[in-house]
Design a protein around this nucleic acid. Structure first.
Lengths: 219, 219
DNA sequence: TTTTATTTTTAGACTAATCAAAATTTATTT
DNA sequence: AAATAAATTTTGATTAGTCTAAAAATAAAA
């Protein structure tokens, strides 16, 4: 049985290696966990002892198949709880991360499978991130940062690449959420801003930052 | 912010002092937590330091008003989560205790108030135990152990005084649950057993143990 | 009221997770 | 290739929670 802390380290390593699949350094882990490099080293040795990571002194780590599976299930639990909080309890998408961070450590496979059923087997969480299956498979779909889209295109918002409360609240104020339709009316190359029509209702100028962080697909 | 462990001690002291409101001994706590008397002493000193209990060496403890409030809120959370697991996720009443034991430590007042609303402001949990309000009030109602009832009485099951899986499963097999109606057909004084008619469907002989642990009221 | 038994506390030690500071290894410059 | 910088590990210590064994206080019995 893994501790809360061990689980958090596995999830952290998972998130850091997810995209590149390269080994991740001690310092990189220390930076995101907010703990010291010394603490990270200690924990990596412990996780290596349990064969959850492949660790070599001074060379960083990556997850073993078992470690990856555990981390994936933590992500599954986190995202399913987020769906529950938003869909059933009426939380907004900027309020659920911290609570789900605690709930993901509840140890019951039956609970999470029942929850999955109860929620209608959702494939994506309230931020548009894919929910892995019990066997660890993520649904992949076509999506690009909105700044890659062209003038005149009609898009649907599928996700966000930033999860900060401030960013999510800002989108809320613009009535932009998962599923919102956007039509690109103007693309200003000098500052990378875009004028978009939101859900066929009102036009809005969006800055470069927003355009890069919104994940969309053409419809 | 209290630790998981500190919360568990508070809840334990609450349960031990709930009925009598007397001070509880170190050994009594050690017995139910399964930890050593030495560990209990250490923890009592820590809780006293935080003014959550009134502790005097060799004299046992009782909860301070603050300690009692925290313990009551833990009971509230535990019982609301049990309602959720049974009513929404389809767990049976013998499966929910251990999961709720973990869930009760999730730290979010908003979460528990939203959950309360979502569940329809239940006043009792799946075992018939009262759910304290956010301000700490328990609903009181008339109920007695079934062995106190007389022949010919029509009763409704309101609760149980034993929460073991074995006991709860046994009741399930007899189709006895919260809300079941029972008519006392015979009372055997020699062995304290009773013959009862269950939900006007079938008769069943219930042993002394069952009769003492079933909480009922006349209807 | 002494003696004995029980309960409780203290003392000393262990594990898990953490840190700062020192030592070591690897990477980068010169 | 040597010197310097950066990253990582080791060392030694701290805190929370736990334990056993010994000591102290209280309760019960003779």
């Amino acid at each position: 049985m893994l501790s809360f802390t061990e689980e958090n380290y596995l999830k952290c390593i998972f998130k850091l290696t997810e995209k590149t699949n390269h080994r991740v350094s001690t310092n990189a882990i220390a930076k995101v966990t907010g703990s010291s490099a010394a603490s990270v080293t200690d924990m990596l040795k412990k996780l290596a002892e349990k064969e959850l990571v492949d660790y070599a002194r001074y060379k960083g780590v990556h997850l073993s198949p078992t470690g990856r599976h555990i981390a994936t299930q933590l992500v599954r639990k986190h995202r399913l709880w987020e769906v529950f909080l938003v869909d059933k309890l009426g939380f907004s998408w900027d309020e659920v991360h911290d609570i789900a961070e605690e709930l993901e450590h509840i140890k019951s496979d039956l609970l999470i499978e029942r929850m999955d059923q109860f929620l209608g087997l959702p494939k994506f969480d309230p931020h548009g991130d894919p929910i892995p299956t019990a066997s660890g498979k993520f649904t992949i779909r076509q999506q690009v940062p909105m700044n890659k889209a062209s003038q005149g295109q009609r898009l649907v918002v599928l996700g966000v690449q930033e999860h900060s409360k401030a960013f999510l609240r800002y989108l809320d104020n613009l009535s932009i959420h998962i599923g919102t339709q956007l039509v690109i009316q103007e693309k200003n190359s000098f500052d990378q801003s875009m004028k978009v029509l939101i859900d066929d209702k009102h036009s809005q100028l969006l800055g470069e930052h927003i355009c890069k962080k919104l994940l969309v697909n053409e419809i």
